[in-house]
Amino acid sequence: MSKLTPKKLTVEDFGSQQSWIGKLFTPLNDFFSQVYQGWNNGITIEDNLHQEIRDVKIVVDANSFPMKIKAKFATYPKGVTVIYCVDAAGGAPTTAPWVSWSYSNGQIEISNITGLTVGKTYNLKIHVIYT
Rank of each mutant, 00 (worst) to 15 (best):
K3D: 13
K7E: 15
L9T: 01
L9H: 01
L9A: 07
T10L: 10
V11Y: 03
S16L: 10
Q17F: 09
Q18C: 02
W20I: 00
W20Y: 15
I21L: 01
K23F: 12
L24Y: 09
L24W: 13
P27C: 04
P27T: 03
N29C: 04
N29E: 09
N29W: 04
N29A: 01
D30I: 04
D30R: 05
F31D: 12
F31V: 07
F31S: 02
S33T: 15
Q34S: 03
Y36L: 07
Y36E: 14
Q37F: 14
Q37G: 01
G38W: 15
W39I: 02
N41R: 04
G42Y: 09
G42R: 13
I43L: 12
I45F: 08
D47R: 05
D47S: 06
N48H: 10
L49Y: 05
L49S: 10
Q51V: 11
E52K: 10
R54P: 00
R54C: 08
D55L: 00
V59N: 08
D61V: 02
A62R: 06
S64I: 02
S64P: 05
S64M: 00
P66V: 04
M67A: 07
K68V: 04
K68W: 03
I69F: 05
I69T: 03
Y76V: 08
P77V: 11
G79D: 05
G79R: 06
T81V: 03
T81K: 08
V82C: 12
C85V: 06
V86Q: 11
V86T: 14
V86D: 11
V86L: 12
D87G: 05
D87W: 14
G90H: 13
G90V: 04
G91W: 13
A92M: 09
P93D: 07
P93G: 15
T94M: 00
T95Q: 14
A96G: 05
A96M: 14
S100C: 01
S102H: 07
S104E: 12
N105M: 06
G106M: 04
I108M: 06
I108T: 08
E109G: 06
E109I: 09
G115C: 02
L116A: 03
T117Y: 02
G119N: 12
K120T: 04
T121G: 13
T121W: 15
Y122C: 04
Y122L: 06
N123Y: 13
L124A: 01
L124G: 03
K125I: 00
I126C: 05
I126S: 11
V128C: 10
V128T: 04
I129S: 10
Y130K: 02
T131L: 15
T131C: 00
T131Y: 11
